[in-house]
Structure formats: structure tokens, C-alpha cells
Design a protein around this nucleic acid. Structure first.
Lengths: 147, 147
DNA sequence: TCTTATATTATAATCGTTATAATTAGTGTA
DNA sequence: TACACTAATTATAACGATTATAATATAAGA
């Protein structure tokens, strides 16, 4: 089914007039098969064996192309590089404001929110991003002890 | 009621051993009264009449202090500075992947998600961030015309 | 195959954010 | 109120992620 995802993604790009280059093919393939949310540099380093001459700029440029096409979502954090996810509706993130830890969290059914939002604003919705911020258990306990 | 918010915020800080400085007071006050989500530099420039010697680092440091205290949320985007919001549960954002436009969108009741998340992960939840990405009406029409 | 616009490469530049060290100033206590 | 101690601020330098630029290479339709 990953192959189907790749083919669908390539078709979607092609249909909007975006050229399919070996680099784009490889980046998309990597995104689909990667389990953890890679940074642009992660992708660059993973592909430099296959494309020794590829530039980091190419990775950034294409991630932006994919994002505009609604194929990839960008997760930005204040203190480090952006991370990129191939768009599938699966899980959300909980983030500790103290230590920065990221914990996955499953929750179904924000589709209703997407639909309402689309209806009200006229947006053609591609995906959403939900993050819940707070203090993780370890940091809570550390603070409690310190006082 | 803004005054109450400020007082509550200052009390919350004090109770965790954070010192109240004139700069912190002013930054918080500015955050509470500002209608549009300011960047660190916006805050810096707004306060430099009152604090001609204040450093940008002070703004960044204190925004992080406030964020850790759950008073302020940081909205990060790939292509520009972070924006900061005083935490109140009101609206979400829709973001155009093409032109970057940000449109406010109202939706009540993600409290349930927060509660479940807290229960499952042990986090003490402060706030959440929800953003919906897609293509705005203008950009959709532009693309349709171009083809 | 040829043509042309688009993509890639290599590199330099930008700019938001953080680190550092010295100085200043809150806040609890006497 | 004055003191002492620790935390906060300032000024500046450094870092690093991302983008801009110009030259070269290449995808894809004719």
C-alpha cells in the first residue's frame, strides 16, 4: 500500500504540472517509508549515498513543493529544525514545555472540525495539526521535589 | 478583566518563585492587550520607548519563562519568526499553504481531547494548538485560472 | 531529437534565536 | 531600611536553519 501512496502522490504532482525528477521521487519515497518525522537534513543525509551531488536546497525546495500540494505537512518547533510528515491522518503530539519531550497520542475524528472550517472559510482543506502542550509527568515530579 | 488577567498571571509566576521585574510586567501587559499575535521583535520594538536599554534576549528569555509557566503559547511557522499568544481558549487558525494567509476560525469544545490526552499520558495540560492547512479561496481560483 | 521552461547544484547570505560574561536589581531577612 | 544572595538583564558574539543567487543540467512535450 505504500507503493500505492507513492504512485498517488506522483500522479497528484504530475497533474498539477510539477515535474517528476529522481530527487523528488526519492524524497517522497523516503517520506512514505520513514517511521519517524525527519528533518530536511535527515532526508539529505539519508539520500546522499544515492545522490552524492544533491544539494540541501533541493530537499528544502521540494518539501515546500510537496507541502503546497498537500502531500506533506511541516511541524515547526521554536528551538530546532522543522520536521516533515507524509500526510496521513493518524496521531497527534503532546509536547512538554519544560524538557521538550514529544509523546504520540491517538485521537480519532477531528474530521468534523475540518469540514466546518472548510465550509465557513472557503478553504480547500488538506490536513490539520493538533498539538497539546503542558508538563510531562517526569518534569512535574522534578518540580514538586525541588520545592 | 484584562487587569484581572495580568494580576492572575503575575501571581502565578510569583508562586513558582519567578521574580517580577518591570520588563516582565510590561511584556505580560503588552501580550494581554495586544490583539494580533506579536513576534518577539514586535514586543521589543513596542517596549523600547519605555525600556530604551532592554535587550531582545530579555524578550526571548521571558517569553520562554511564560511559556513554561503555561501563560503564553508559541506559534511557530517554517518561514518566519515565532508568534506568541497569551493563553486564552478562543480561536484557531487556518493557514494557506500557498500564500501563507492566516484566517481565524472559531470552534468550541476540544476540552474533551485535552482531558483524554492528560489521562492517557500523565501530562499536566496547559493548552493546545490546532491549525488547519489547505488552500484559500483566492489561491484556488488563481490556480484554476492558470490552467 | 530538439527546445524550452523548470529543477538542481554550489555557494553565499540572511536573520531568528541562543550563549556568554559582566553588571544590575528583586526579594527575603535582620 | 540596609544587606546579602541569587536571579535577571544587558550587550555582544556566535550559531545554525533556511533562503537567495547564478550557472548548469534535465524533464517532457513537440
Amino acid at each position: 500500500m505504500s507503493d500505492g501512496q507513492l504512485k498517488d502522490a506522483l500522479d497528484a504532482l504530475k497533474s498539477t504540472g510539477v515535474r517528476i525528477t529522481p530527487q523528488r521521487h526519492a524524497i517522497l519515497e523516503y517520506m512514505i517509508h520513514s517511521t519517524m518525522h525527519p528533518t530536511a537534513d535527515d532526508i539529505y543525509r539519508a539520500l546522499e549515498k544515492t545522490f552524492p551531488n544533491m544539494s540541501v536546497a533541493t530537499v528544502y525546495n521540494n518539501l515546500r513543493v510537496f507541502r503546497k500540494a498537500g502531500l506533506v505537512k511541516e511541524l515547526t518547533y521554536g528551538d530546532s529544525s522543522s520536521r516533515f510528515d507524509f500526510v496521513t491522518n493518524d496521531h497527534y503530539h503532546m509536547i512538554c514545555n519544560d524538557c521538550g519531550k514529544i509523546v504520540d497520542f491517538h485521537y480519532p475524528g477531528l474530521d468534523e472540525v475540518e469540514h466546518l472550517a472548510s465550509h465557513v472559510t472557503g478553504f480547500q482543506v488538506d490536513y490539520h495539526r493538533l498539538e497539546i502542550y503542558g508538563t510531562c509527568q517526569e518534569c512535574s515530579e522534578k518540580t514538586a521535589k525541588a520545592q
